[in-house]
Structure formats: structure tokens, C-alpha cells
Design a protein around this nucleic acid. Sequence first.
DNA 1: CCTCTTATTGCAAGCCAGTGCAATAAGAAA
DNA 2: TTTCTTATTGCACTGGCTTGCAATAAGAGG
Lengths: 138, 138
Amino acid sequence: MPDLFRRRGMRWTPQRRAVVRVLANASGHVTATELIERCRADDPSTTPSTVYRTLDVLEELGLVRHAHDADGREEFHVQPSAEHGHLYCSVCGGRWEVADSQAQAVLRAFASTDGFSVDLSHMTVVGICRSCAESSRE
Amino acid sequence: MPDLFRRRGMRWTPQRRAVVRVLANASGHVTATELIERCRADDPSTTPSTVYRTLDVLEELGLVRHAHDADGREEFHVQPSAEHGHLYCSVCGGRWEVADSQAQAVLRAFASTDGFSVDLSHMTVVGICRSCAESSRE
DNA sequence: CCTCTTATTGCAAGCCAGTGCAATAAGAAA
DNA sequence: TTTCTTATTGCACTGGCTTGCAATAAGAGG
């Protein structure tokens, strides 16, 4: 991991170590604010701007990805082994990952007509989930 | 228009008149910040929080809709006669409306398997447009 | 036209993100 | 181990957006 940075002329600093450590213990999706809080738990002197900049760097290196939640706030997710979009229900606030079959359908829809290649991991779809739709029909 | 408000126990205030007037002269998509600036041009005493709250009210009434741009910032659009999603190219920053055929494909993909009904007008898709993809292939 | 209820406003304060800049420290080379 | 370049940090500040609260004013009813 240190080499990954140094090979690019980047530095493996204590602050970056801290962010990487916290990310390693995180699973799924985390907002920048949550990450900052967890880093502060380890080391209260953690600075927000450093965490934001570290996240940018980690994203450049492909170690994390970010998307936006239903309100447009940034959310990071670790190890994008399988790229996936996100589904938000605007009624109950529930959230799901987009299943692969649906993802493929979306990908195809835009690729075939426009030649537009969708960045799945950055895709946020808001709507109403089945159970909320059913319960609103009284 | 005044009645639309009053019937619901809401008030038709000078500030709301101002926002509605500005929106009427706007076309397509506008950020809240742009709206605030235009309102200030008419009346320098305009307050941001009032504009934001007015936009919320207008959205409740169905007169405007908002979505998020590629960076998660809010964007409003007027008269949602035809609901449509938004496509952003992360390379050139270009933006397009999602064509109806693609929108239908997306709608179907999520409705059929999950029973999830997508809010098209709130959908933002980020990716790489055809011409940027071609020019990056040298 | 006056009263009275209460929806709205404006202000101050706060949170999330991002940025310029001087000071610091990583780490390559001597 | 010491030196020296320069990537990074921390701070202070700006900008977008939201919220609590006291003061204001819309507008229904008398």
C-alpha cells in the first residue's frame, strides 16, 4: 500500500494511514462526515479538509468510489469489486443496490442509442419502493 | 394562482410572487443560487432562505421539480409537462435530457423486477458521452 | 375598516464541502 | 545521518443549503 502511493510520487502520511485504516473497518457506504467522525475517534486532531482530500486521492487511485444519496450528499464505498448503482425510496428512506440485471438494462438503454457509457457506481435512482407504493394504496 | 395557495391555507406573499415571476421568465433548469441572484436583481432585499422555502412550497404544489446535477447540487426545472431524467458527461460536463425510449427502458427495468417506481424527473445519470469516449481513444 | 390567528419572513447560527496559502514533514539523494 | 525538494497538512475562509425563533403581515371574520 505505501508503494502504491510512493510510485506515483505521493506520500504515505500518518493522516492517510488513518483514513485508510478507518475505511478498512468500514463496510458498504459511508458519508464523508461519518468517516471524519470515525477518524476523530482514533485521533481527535483529524482535520476535515485532510479527510476530504485523502478521499479524493483514494478515488484517483481507484480504491474508493463515491456517489450521491437521494439528497445529493456524497457517499463513499470501498473496494468497488462489483460496480453497482443505488436505489432510494423517497417515502421510507430505504436503500438498495441495483441488481445486475437491471444495471445491464440501463447500460444497454443508453449505450445503444446515444453511445453514452453510464458510470453505474455513480448512479442514484430515486423513486417509490413496492411496499410503500402498496401501503399508500390504503 | 393566488387561489392555488389560499385554498390550502397558504399565503400569496410579495416574496412568493417574486419567485414565481422569476421562474416564469426562466426556461429549462436553474440552480437555486441562480434564482436567488435573479430575484435579487428585481429586489435586492431578497433573502436566500425565503427563496429556498418558496421553492419547497412550489414543489409541494407540483409547480416545479428538482433534481441533482453531477456534483449533487440542486437544480430546479419548471412546468414538468414531460418528466425526464438527466444525463451528465463527467468528462466534458455536457448535459442532456434522457430520451423517452430510454426512460421507458429504465422504468421497466425497475418496475418489473422490484416493483420500484422510478421518479424520472429526479434521476441523474453520470457517465461518458459518445464524443468524449471517441476522443479519448486517441 | 379593525381584529386576531397564524403562516411567513428575515436574521443569526450551523452544517457540509471545497480552496488558497504559509508552515510542516515525507522520503530521495548525498 | 543530514540536506533539500516539494507533496501534504492545518487553518481560516467562502459558498451552498437548512433550521430555530422572534417579529411581521396575510387575509378571514366580525
